[in-house]
Structure formats: C-alpha cells, structure tokens
Computed example of a mutant assay.
Amino acid sequence: MAMLSNKSWFKLHGWCSLPVWLIFCFVCLTGTIAVLSHELTWLTNPAARASNPQDKPALPISQLVAAVQQKFPTADVSGVMTFEPYLVHAITFTDHDKPYAIAYVNQYSGEIQEINEGLTFIGFMRSLHGWLLFPWQQSYSVGYYLVSAMAFVMLGALITGLMVYKKFWRSFTQPKVRLTANKATVLADLHRLAGVWSIWFLMLMSATGFWYLAQAIMWHNEIDIEPHAPIVAINEVPTDSQSPKLSLADAMDIATKRFPQLQPSFIMLPEHQRGMYQISGGGDHIFYDQYAYALSINPWTGIIASEKSPESLTAVQTLMHIADPLHYGTLGGLWTKFLWFFFGVILTGMSITGFMMWATRLKKAMREDAASAFA
C-alpha cells in the first residue's frame, strides 16, 4: 500500500466509481428519497394522513378490519400494515372486482379515506432503490445484486479517497472551501470536505450493503435465515365448515399479553383452513426493525405455534433485523430520518461532483494532447 503513489491512489479512486457512476448516483438518489418516503406520502396525499384533531386513542385493529368488511361484504381481507402515528393503517384485501386493493383507514376515526388499487409511493421507492424494479426470478433479482454490489464501490471509494487526501482529519477542525477559486478547485474542496464528514455514513452504508449482498446470496441458494411460518396440523382442523374459534381481536389480545411491548406493524390473517394469524411488530429495542417480534397463533386453539423476539434471535437473524433501521435511519424516528436524508443528499452530491471533477480533468488532458499534436 505504502509503495503506491498519490497519482496511483487517485486513479484507483476514480476506477472505484466511474465505471458504474450512473448506477451508483441513481442508487444514492433513490435511497435518499426512500428514507423520507413515508413523510413525502403524508405531504403529497391527504388521504394518507391520520388526522386526529380530537386527540382520540387509536381504535383496535380488528375494528378497522370490520369497517372494511362492512363496506365490502364480499371482500377477503388478507392483512394489515401500520406505519407512523401520522399515517393511516393500510388494510389489504381482494374482491370480485378488485384483484388487489389497499384501504387507507384512519385508525382514530375508523373512516376509510381511500381505496388504492395500484402501487404506493412507499412501495415504489423502496422497490426502485432496493432492486431497480428488476423482476424477481424464483428467489433472486439481478437488480438486487447490482444495488448490493454498490457496497464494494462505496468502500473502495472511501479507502482510496482517504489515501489520496492526506491529513484528511484537518477538515473536521479547519474546513476549507475556496469559493473564489476556479471551478476545478471549488469542486475538489467540496468533494473532499463532504467525503471527510461523511466517513461514518459511508462506512455504515457499506456495511449494510454487504449484509444485503450476503442476504441475496442466501436467498438465491435457498438458505433460510428464519424458519417458515407453521401451518395448522391437519388433525386440528374441524371436518365441518365452521369458522375459526379465534377472532382477530382475540389473536391480538394473545399477542400483546405474550409481548406487552409489541407494537404491531404487519398482521396477516389466515388465508385458508390451515393458515394462522401471523402478527409481526417492533418493540422497545430501537436498533431492531418493525418485524423483530413475530407470533404465529393457531385460529382454532388459540395456541402460539411459534414466536420470536430480539432475545431469541440468532446472530444472522439479528443482522437481518438491525440492517434496515441502520440503512434507512428509522432507529430514532424523524430526527434520524432527516439526518440520514441530509447525508444521503451529500453522498449523491459527492457522486456528481466526483464525475464533474473527472470530466474537467479529461477535457484538460484532451486539450493538452491536441496542443502537443500540433506543436
């Protein structure tokens, strides 16, 4: 390493990003937007806002499901998704004229504010950033691999950049941007300053990116990180066509008694006679995602067939459940989201200024070559 010249490190720094510059910049941009996708949805879609002027407590989720079933008597409700308190609950269902629909239900008033039969902005941005909307073939997507591989680009650019920028730590105490200098100097100053102040962010994005890549490889090779949800034993299913004994309200009560700290985020209702209530949520662990707690509850007996919590996770499962909060900045609520968004803008800007610096140097080199050719 020490034998490489500064010029060689600079060339390596360029090769870490320039060949895939457009993809890297696009991934940074879409990820930055995805961080605030919930807030942007609230801002742009009034029907997604969970207004609560009378400061009422949230209604039971079972009551919200009942409201959807009352409005659409022939509907088959499949699940419930909950978000931040300022966003409505999303209840997914199918009907004879709706292959797939999402009811936006205000959890404070019980009002159905919108029926969405298409792709949501949140889902679109997460998909665009996560796998570039490439199709999934069995258990893998080429786009997911492309996005995850950006971890190599980011880490390589970070290491080579620090090798090029000698005594980079001075930018913490003596930041320097020579705004009155020429374009190339200003771009270089901004690029270096942003890079130094973003070291922690680059390392964090690289680490989570490497995890997503490892996760993709495990999915592709059908290696289960977590066991599949169980189904009801066939001998426990009644022979007649009676409805399950356990209602959604009962299942929620069982779940909250088992994990009092549970904050449900995704609930799947039984899809068939052998299906179970699948209840997932977060808790009081800020570094874990909204699926760190999960229960499978038998609708015929009320028995918890399987469960998980942060205390019972394996090392690999723990990595899976802490990656998203660290990658998207959800661990501290709005404050960390805006912090991640800010550094996402900086990272996107760095990819652009880096390309502009390269283009400026290329033009200069081409002019010098042309001048020497006619000398």
Rank of each mutant, 00 (worst) to 15 (best):
K98T: 01
K98A: 01
K98N: 02
P99K: 02
P99R: 02
P99W: 01
A101T: 01
I102T: 02
Y104E: 02
Y104C: 02
V105S: 00
V105R: 00
V105Q: 00
N106M: 09
N106D: 06
Y108K: 06
Y108G: 06
S109D: 09
G110Q: 02
I112A: 00
E114A: 03
E114Y: 00
I115T: 00
I115N: 00
N116F: 15
N116W: 14
N116P: 14
E117D: 06
G118F: 11
T120F: 13
T120E: 08
F121H: 04
F121Y: 05
I122Y: 09
I122D: 04
I122L: 10
G123V: 05
R126M: 09
R126W: 06
L128F: 06
L128N: 07
L128M: 10
H129C: 12
G130K: 11
W131L: 15
W131P: 12
L132T: 14
L133D: 14
P135Q: 07
P135A: 14
P135R: 10
W136H: 03
W136N: 05
W136A: 03
Q137G: 12
Q137T: 08
Q137D: 06
S139L: 04
S141W: 09
S141M: 05
S141C: 09
V142C: 14
Y145V: 13
L146F: 13
S148E: 15
S148W: 09
A149I: 08
M150W: 09
M150F: 11
A151T: 04
F152K: 08
V153F: 05
M154V: 01
G156A: 04
G156H: 03
A157Q: 07
A157K: 05
L158E: 06
T160S: 07
T160P: 06
T160E: 12
G161D: 11
G161C: 04
G161M: 09
L162T: 03
V164E: 07
Y165R: 12
K166Y: 06
K167F: 15
F168G: 05
F168Q: 05
W169S: 04
R170K: 12
S171R: 13
S171C: 12
F172I: 02
T173V: 13
T173M: 14
P175R: 15
P175H: 13
P175F: 12
P175S: 11
K176S: 07
V177T: 14
V177F: 14
R178A: 15
R178T: 10
R178I: 15
L179R: 09
L179Y: 08
L179M: 05
T180W: 12
T180M: 14
A181H: 07
N182R: 11
N182P: 15
K183G: 10
K183E: 08
A184M: 06
T185L: 08
V186L: 15
V186S: 10
V186Y: 13
V186P: 11
V186D: 12
D189M: 14
D189G: 15
L190I: 08
H191V: 08
H191F: 12
H191G: 11
R192I: 15
R192W: 08
R192K: 09
R192Y: 15
L193P: 09
L193Y: 15
W197Y: 03
W197D: 01
S198L: 00
S198R: 00
I199A: 00
W200V: 01
F201P: 02
L202Q: 05
L204V: 07
L204D: 11
M205T: 07
M205V: 04
A207P: 01
A207V: 02
A207D: 03
G209R: 08
F210S: 06
